[in-house]
């Protein structure tokens, strides 16, 4: 049996998404996404058309995963968790850079 070969692509090379598509791909509702955007967890690339870079899918999917896995039912609490999560990720990235440049 021949195995299919597929291409993996960089997220920044992927197309932009609408709010509806973002909801569809993350599992979160449009309402929840709007709340997370209001809390500053992420932002549309174009505020007029409400389009999002494909990296937002990763953030929104993380939000969905954390909401499910910790059984969080308050979007504001979820936003706080995500902001802290993003800070940890940023610190880890900084640690990697510092270690690399040591």
């Amino acid at each position: 049996m021949s195995i299919e070969t597929v291409e993996a692509i960089y997220l920044e090379h992927s197309e932009q998404l609408t709010l509806v598509e973002l909801a569809e791909r993350s599992g979160l509702s449009e309402y929840e996404l709007r709340e997370l955007i209001e809390c500053g967890v992420f932002a549309p690339v174009d505020a007029a058309t409400w389009t999002f870079e494909s990296r937002s899918v990763v953030v929104a999917r993380t939000a969905y995963r954390l909401r499910e896995e910790f059984a969080l039912d308050d979007t504001h609490a979820l936003a706080v968790v995500l902001r802290l999560f993003q800070r940890i990720e940023a610190l880890q990235a900084e640690l990697r850079v510092t270690r690399a440049r040591r």
Binding site: V6, E7, A8, L11, R96
Partner: peptide, 10 residues
């Protein structure tokens, strides 16, 4: 390291 890639449609 830590990067995400996307395989569309898979």
């Amino acid at each position: 390291d830590g990067q995400k890639l996307r395989v569309p449609g898979k």
